[in-house]
Nucleic acid binder design. Structure first.
Lengths: 191, 191
DNA sequence: CGATTCTTTGAAAACAGTCAATCTGTGTGG
DNA sequence: CCACACAGATTGACTGTTTTCAAAGAATCG
């Protein structure tokens, strides 16, 4: 639904109806079923994607076939392989749907056009990039500083909603621990 | 030295001498001695900083007093607490000099002014942000996916120069392992 | 030098991972 | 609607890695 995206923009910046229409004109809506890929390693990725419903994950697969989740995106989050988008090289990450999902896609050229022509849009994206970098800095800090238990606790604090809707083995993968370890951490933490 | 910064810009985008002068006019040069702070946790940070000489590190200190290094910056790297810069809130990170260093500082307001008035500068910064995000994605991936040995090997591959000039215990801190473990990893890897 | 600071080494303990089995809930097809 | 299959979660026993604590060697710097 484009309306979700519209609301997201309007709550962040002041923007005219004409500008919203400009954005709408270059937006594509896409639906994904659970487990369906948005992007596979090796694809070239040319879009900016905004999640309007459901949940997706960005992840890698290592030599042993194990998945490692870089991040999740639920409603009102952006998702995509920035490296691939930027460089035009094949993606090194996979993205698929954790739940049935709906997205708004804007291709790279149109996205740049919107940034150039709509100052409010540009400012909003700048904010998001900055916030995204800050979030990643914090993520790096917790992965190198915390024990399994601290990591899980922080995840619960930061994303209480996600903790309820995302399977545990995926949370474990996100935290960089095994599902068994997460299960034990949870049992310990309960009483 | 501003000249290093000038060269950096000129190799990345095409820019006029007048524009360079505009940038120079709002740039401040700062020297730091080894171990001197650029920023301490709790300070409010209002600058973008570019390293022209030496080496700095961004790090946190945990409850136990242990340091955890988020990243290093050597010549031709940018450094700063983006979260604090963006939000205006006190920094949650520390930055200090690993080696005697020289920096070019531009305050937030002037930096935004440069981005608004000099398209080439704006494009360059956009590129840097994108690349920075891609690098962070990869960093997250390796911290959650790799063993101590793989992390160290990747560090050597990516930053062979840094491996020579940065003390080992700081590399260990960056990798999220203890100095003892790094020492043992190195011994194993040698023969 | 003498004093830090950094690196290495050893032994024990804590922690997380692996493998395998069981339990639970969900959903699908008969 | 039931039964079965399947994905997910839990548990136990064991293994392996990493940390911790302590001490002893290098290296560096004033």
């Amino acid at each position: 639904m484009f309306e979700v995206f519209k609301t997201y923009i309007e709550t962040r910046v002041s923007i005219t109806a004409a500008e919203i229409d400009q954005i709408r004109a270059v937006s594509t809506v896409k639906k994904l079923r659970k487990k369906q890929y948005l992007l596979q390693e090796g694809d070239v990725w040319g879009f900016h994607a905004f999640v309007t419903r459901g949940c997706l994950r960005t992840y890698t697969i290592d030599d042993k076939g194990l998945e490692h989740i870089i991040y999740f995106a639920t409603e009102n989050w952006w998702i995509g392989d920035r490296a691939s988008l930027f460089s035009g090289k094949p993606a090194t990450f996979n993205i698929d749907a954790v739940e049935d999902a709906e997205l708004v896609l804007i291709n790279k050229a149109n996205f740049e056009m919107l940034r150039a022509h709509i100052p409010a849009f540009n400012a909003m994206i700048g904010d998001i990039l900055e916030k995204g970098m800050a979030a990643m800095q914090n993520r790096i800090n917790s992965t190198i500083s915390f024990t399994a238990e601290q990591k899980y606790q922080q995840f619960l604090d930061k994303y209480p909603d996600m903790a309820l809707r995302i399977p545990q083995h995926m949370i474990a993968s996100y935290l960089g621990i095994t599902p068994e370890t997460l299960s034990r951490v949870r049992r310990q933490a309960k009483p």
